[in-house]
Write a protein that binds this DNA or RNA. Structure first.
Lengths: 218, 218
DNA sequence: ATTAATTTTTAGATTTGTCTAAATATTTTC
DNA sequence: GAAAATATTTAGACAAATCTAAAAATTAAT
């Protein structure tokens, strides 16, 4: 079964939304896709026909096994290309999303396999997100939100959710990247903010909002 | 000015046809694009509006300067990706055309520039075709068809026209690639065939048809 | 220089992915 | 549990890129 880039984008969006929402609705998906709910209904009918989603009028929808496989393959390609762009072409991690959005739709599976091998079969992309292997298998790390970690623990940053330009820009200023080792100095109940110390740098304060989006290996 | 993948393909096709035909006609282009002449007329009207071709009803068409720049940029991306696929990912030169047809439409200029640098700013792709630089400049080699070269000369294969699967398959069997050094042993006026010798291999005969499609540096 | 053959263009239809506006279904609220 | 608010779907339209069939223009042939 083959899919257009647009179909792949819908499938991918449903996949990502399924993570955080137990029911994926028309409006939710239309927000994610920057389209109107009516367009989502139209597309979902098509995807139902192609048997990648279970769709019932007014009831929301979930991916079928086939849909999940398709989503994982797109995510795999997206993250492999991001890895390539950062680690081979020298882009910053906050510059690569747009390009990867285009590259993820290149169809050749042989290309994906060879790219994967060329990069050394990485398990995580530059944002710390797991890269599904050729079977769709994902490596899970024991990670915890920085906002939850006990004071005095030393941890390694392993992923950043909310990959908005604003967030990545802030992290760049704080000199926090995937792999950064840091110590939790203290946490303040007043606003949930956290004081941390990165290696030899001066301690810094980060808001609860930011700390919730940074995941660490303990 | 931005173009859809389809528009870029039309522009590229006109560019290539301009090389070999002094007038590019509707039917000629429809053959190249695998579409009907009526579709070409429609598209050409659009490209005229976008000022990339000079188009006059019933008169054929040529690229404007802007059109030429656009074509060269697409060709540049196509050939850089082919170079990447062969020299970094280890594909055979006859496997990469399809993938490059998709990759050439990835839009980021910054990506093209970085890819170019990563590859070491190559001047020729794996088929020996010149890669336009970032200004659209092309390196011209003094090359001659193998079918024209004097007996006893030793030359280097620099390009192969007619990049059909059949042709590339034949060359693979003959162990001829871009860069192969070979000596012209004799030529036969009866059918225009040529006897050549590659390094330490036994001499081989190749037909005029093949010899005409192999270009060499003298 | 007409007629015939060929090429090109127009006119109208189709598919994909989208939209707006209106209709319908579901949820929430009182 | 009926009314109000919200969510979803239908109906009809549009732009892009294509098609077929028919009309118009050009070129070739006698």
């Amino acid at each position: 079964m083959t899919f257009t880039a647009t179909e792949e984008n819908y499938i991918k969006a449903i996949y990502h939304l399924q993570d955080a929402h137990e029911k994926v609705s028309t409006t939710l998906l239309s927000g994610e896709m920057n389209t109107k709910p009516a367009s989502v209904t139209d597309m979902l009918k098509k995807l139902e026909l192609k048997k990648v989603v279970h769709y019932q009028k007014y009831k929301g929808f979930i991916l079928t096994d086939e849909g999940n496989r398709t989503a994982l393959n797109v995510v795999r390609k997206h993250r492999l290309w991001e890895y390539f762009l950062v680690n081979k072409l020298g882009f910053e991690w906050d510059e690569v999303h747009c390009m990867a959005e285009e590259l993820e739709h290149i169809s050749s599976n042989e290309l994906t396999t060879r790219l994967d091998n060329y990069l050394g079969n990485p398990a995580f992309d530059p944002h710390g997100d797991p890269i599904p292997d050729h079977k769709g298998k994902i490596k899970i790390l024991m990670q915890e939100r920085l906002s939850e970690i006990d004071v005095n623990k030393i941890v390694t940053v392993s992923a950043v959710k909310n990959q908005s330009v604003e967030m990545l820009d802030l992290l760049k200023h704080l000199k926090i990247v995937i792999g950064t080792r840091l110590k939790i100095i203290s946490r303040f109940d007043f606003d949930g903010s956290v004081e941390i110390k990165v290696e030899k740098l001066a301690p810094i304060y980060i808001s609860k909002q930011v700390a919730q989006n940074i995941f660490c290996i303990i």
